[in-house]
Design a protein around this nucleic acid. Sequence first.
RNA 1: GCUUCCGUAGCUCAGUAGGAUAGAGCACAAGUUUCCUAAACUUGGUGCCACAGGUUCGAUUCCUGUCGGGAGCACCA
Length: 550
Amino acid sequence: MTKESYAKDIFISALNKLNINATDRLKFETPKNPDHGDFSSNIAMQLAKELQDNPRNIANKIIENIEYDKSIVTNLEIAGAGFINIKFSNNFYFDALKAIVSQNENYGKQEIGKGKSVNVEYVSANPTGLLHLGHGRNAAIGDTVANLYEWLGYAVTREYYFNNAGNQMNTLAKSIFARYMQVLGKTDFPFPEDGYHGDYIRLIAEEIFAKEGKKYFTGSASDLEILKKYGEVWNFDKIKKTLKRMNIHQDVFYNEDTLYTEGKIDAVIAEFKEKGLAYELDGALWLKLSELGQEKDKVIVKSTGEPTYRLPDIAYHKEKILRNYDIIIDIFGADHIATVTDVFAGVKALGLDASKLKVLIYQFVTLTENGEQVKMSKRTGKSYTLDELLTEVGEDVVRFFFIMRGISTHLEFDLAIAKEQSDKNPVFYLQYAHARICSVIDNAIEKGIVINNNADLTLLSTNAELNLIKELMRFPDIIKIAADKYEPHLIADYLRDVATAFHVFYHECRIIGIENDLMQSRFALVKSVRTVIKNGLTILGISAPERMFN
RNA sequence: GCUUCCGUAGCUCAGUAGGAUAGAGCACAAGUUUCCUAAACUUGGUGCCACAGGUUCGAUUCCUGUCGGGAGCACCA
């Protein structure tokens, strides 16, 4: 039983007695100010207009008709403009803690998504280069969202859209070839204008030369094809290694190529033509987006015969929709905003249900240090790669920093704070709470204390203890809200609140060395805190160390 | 010009699907350890919630417009 379920029960039966049907408007919230009780309803204010009565009068009538169990609710009162505030008994909280203790490491897991499926597509970087900061934010958001849905009981597919077909792959081949020729001694061999200037291209060229010599010097189509493939494999290998460092493992690597080989691109073209939504002009094939609510028509097949990105994107989303997921989530950077509406329009035009699609757009990341923007790595002199950042500040810090802000706000990644292994770094605050608890338990075991599993929780009586229980009770709701709103940072914020409540408790209440029964109940409490922090960090893909400062 | 995100404390950001006295971390100042990890805790205060209208019993939150900053507006992806 939760606060919500009990409060709803007693309110609905009171409203029924008054012949008021307001079930859908009945919402409760936990007031910020503890003087306003544990739970609060604004229903009386909402009803004021249609009942043509003063909210406080209505609240009074509702309260008069509420029947409640005094061992669960201790007080109901009207406050302010007409709020009804509920105070729950300590016993209610002890029962809630008992439930947490018994669920143990499963606490927070839910069945809301049972029998339903979610596809989360994230990272999806082209194999033309190494991952950079933006990909890092993408990866952290995508993986955390996937975790959240898993905790809600959904069957989650983590997907990576692998695109080795477009124009950019030819640019990669040409870039490698130019560096290759330079490695062969033609130092003035021209580098393509729009080529990839990163240092890794040179590494790839050197590696090819070391392994296979100069046999690709002709630069023929077949040579370029080999260089392209080599670069693709090389880059993708690096990408996967970087993701692995971030504790990310995707289930499906959907290759764009299969859209062509399995005829899915052609099928979509045929369908657009059949619906009269595609026409030829200047040798190119255009999609009538202007008839689909967009500003202007756009090209889907270039006059060269190659599709623009729009067409495979539409075909790919069609493909995902046909795979029958209940929710399909894409994670994109702000630079992709324009493509989203095109894909939606295209998918709808194919008669598919676009309401299952949810596109998360995250804003850009800037790296700062001591208030100044950092563009280049001091160590390499090149722009920061994700791998480099991981090495510099550590995996846990990277994952945390990338999700600690709302996804729609610009993220300032402060290198100085990230590097700091101290109290300034918010990650350590959470991990420290976990390590502290582990340490106390180790300590008890060392002293020969036996921790039993049926402590008398009613012995917990201080504010610090009760606040901690209340904090722990929020965990399932927070997971649900974070998933519904697609906001991983809510988990990070929540864990900080839990850690704070724990540290306050720890400061005020001793555990070891006090009377046995109370000690046992405090162990139960503290073990639950440890579980919540560990589960929360797991959702964020961050480790929960048992020991800190070695 | 159009699309989109943002504008809240000195800085970085929250604000629980519209609620009561707008919060946290950092920075700054002062304290707390014979005692389970002081990477902790306690105490200090600052806000025309960018601006102007509108909706509402009630707006930092929703709508419209203005200003300011970011990201887009290809036969690149």
